[in-house]
């Protein structure tokens, strides 16, 4: 046994975190051990707080500490547009643009049978239910351009068209060349996709 039992326990817990290997876990554990009582107390409280106060917004399924999240309650938001994302972190990325003023819906993943994720495990029923109350006119699907993101987008687009026909406009965000990117430096897959998604001028 290299560590005293409580220390081994901490290292073990930290190791379970994504992106943390045994070395990092050990470094973090020793750091926590050396930190002041107050500092480590703040970390403990922060973890406990997240678990007790953060829940899913029952409307869009983003994380929130309120009954309904800030975006869903914001009266200045355009309620006719809905952006569908896979994960809360994708919503954060969209928000950082400061350009998008509509509402969101977080699916909680993408369809991936290999990982046991079928469409019924995503918040798709909840998405359809939103059309009953809100005055949504347009849906922007913002899943990643991976095989799974593409499949999820196709599934949603198909479902929305079947359910609502032409009443609702459905689009997908464009993929391809990064802004300021040089054609010369783009990898081939990106260029091929940019070609696929080209638009008329």
């Amino acid at each position: 046994m290299y560590y005293a039992k409580p220390l081994a326990k901490l290292v073990g817990e930290l190791e379970k975190l994504p992106g943390i290997g045994p070395k990092s876990a050990q470094r973090l554990a020793f750091h926590i051990l050396r930190s002041s009582e107050e500092e480590s107390r703040r970390l403990v409280d922060a973890i406990a707080d997240v678990k007790t106060h953060i829940k899913m917004c029952p409307v869009c399924f983003n994380f929130t500490d309120k009954d309904t999240c800030d975006i869903c309650r914001d009266p200045k938001r355009d309620r006719s547009i809905l952006c569908v994302v896979a994960e809360p972190r994708d919503l954060v990325a969209m928000e950082k643009t400061n350009e998008y003023k509509g509402l969101y819906h977080v699916l909680g993943g993408v369809i991936s049978p290999m990982d046991g994720v079928g469409p019924e495990m995503l918040k798709i029923r909840e998405l359809l239910a939103r059309f009953k109350q809100d005055e949504i006119k347009e849906v922007i699907i913002a899943t990643n351009p991976t095989i799974e993101g593409d499949a999820t987008a196709m599934y949603l687009a198909d479902l929305l068209k079947k359910t609502f026909g032409t009443d609702i406009k459905v689009s997908r965000i464009a993929h391809g060349m990064p802004v300021g990117g040089d054609l010369d430096y783009a990898d081939q897959a990106t260029l091929i996709q940019a070609l696929e998604w080209r638009r008329e001028m």
Partner: peptide, 11 residues
């Protein structure tokens, strides 16, 4: 779920 199969068919 036929729909679940179809999204892969297309790709």
């Amino acid at each position: 779920n036929m729909k679940a199969l179809e999204v892969w068919d297309e790709q």
